[in-house]
C-alpha cells in the first residue's frame, strides 16, 4: 500500500471539510459548526446565482429585452410582473400584493400534480394489479401475482376505518399489518444500504482522490 497525496488545493479543501463534518460523530465541536455554516452559505449563494443565470436570464430577461415583439415574447411581462410582486413581502404596506403570485403558484402546482398523480399513479397502478392469478407453467409468477393481489387487498382493508376491525375483517386487516411490516423492513434495509453507500463514497474520495491510496 502506497500513498500519493493530491496536489490539487480543491481536493485538499474538500477532504478537510469532509473530515470536519465527520468530527461530529465523536462529538459536536467548532470545526463541525464552521463546516456546516460554510456549506449552508455557499449553497444559498450558488443556488441564487445558478437560478439567475440558468433560468431568469435565458428564459425571461434575454427574450424580453432582445426580441420583445417576436414569438409573443411580450407575454413574458406577465411572469415578470408577478415575480416582482413577490418581493412586496419586504414592504409591510404593500405585502398583500405578493398574495397574487402565490395564489397563481398554488393554483398551478396542485393541478399539475393532481393530474400527474391521476394518470401516473392512480389509473396505472390499478391497471398494474389486474393480474392473472394462475399462470400455467410459471409457478413463481403465479405466487408473485397472488401475493401482490392478496397483499394489496389486505392492506387496503387495514386502512378502511368505517367498520370495526373484528371477525373476518379484523383477521384480514391483521394480515395487512404483516404485509406493511415486510414493506417497512425492506425500506429500512434500503435506507441502511443508502447510508453505508454514502459513507463508502466519502471514504473512496478520501482514500483515492485525496491520499491516492486505492488501486483500480
Amino acid at each position: 500500500m502506497s500513498f500519493h497525496p493530491s496536489h490539487d488545493i480543491g481536493v485538499w479543501i474538500a477532504a478537510l471539510l469532509t473530515l470536519g463534518i465527520f468530527s461530529f460523530l465523536y462529538k459536536d465541536n467548532p470545526v463541525y459548526k464552521f463546516c456546516e455554516h460554510l456549506f449552508v452559505g455557499v449553497s444559498a449563494g450558488y443556488y441564487v446565482v445558478l437560478t439567475m443565470m440558468s433560468s431568469v436570464y435565458p428564459n425571461l430577461i434575454h427574450p424580453l429585452f432582445t426580441s420583445f415583439a417576436s414569438d409573443r415574447h411580450y407575454l413574458l411581462i406577465i411572469p415578470l410582473v408577478l415575480g416582482i410582486m413577490l418581493f412586496s413581502r419586504f414592504f409591510p404596506r404593500g405585502d398583500w400584493l405578493s398574495r397574487w403570485p402565490i395564489a397563481f403558484v398554488l393554483g398551478v402546482y396542485p393541478a399539475l400534480r393532481i393530474t400527474g398523480f391521476g394518470q401516473g399513479d392512480f389509473v396505472e397502478q390499478i391497471h398494474g394489479t389486474i393480474l392473472p392469478l394462475w399462470v400455467p407453467g410459471h409457478l413463481g409468477t403465479t405466487i408473485g401475482n397472488l401475493l401482490l393481489v392478496v397483499g394489496l387487498l389486505c392492506t387496503l382493508i387495514f386502512f378502511f376505518f368505517s367498520k370495526e376491525h373484528k371477525g373476518a375483517m379484523g383477521g384480514t386487516a391483521r394480515l395487512g399489518i404483516y404485509f406493511l411490516m415486510v414493506s417497512f423492513g425492506a425500506s429500512y434495509g434500503y435506507t441502511v444500504m443508502a447510508r453505508v453507500s454514502l459513507l463508502i463514497g466519502r471514504v473512496m474520495f478520501l482514500l483515492d482522490d485525496w491520499l491516492g491510496a486505492l488501486r483500480f
Binding site: M1, V196, I200, V203, L207, A213
Partner: peptide
Amino acid sequence: AVALLVILPLLFN
C-alpha cells in the same frame, strides 16, 4: 467499527 469495515476492504482490495 463501521468505518474500519468500510476502509479496510477498499484499501486491501
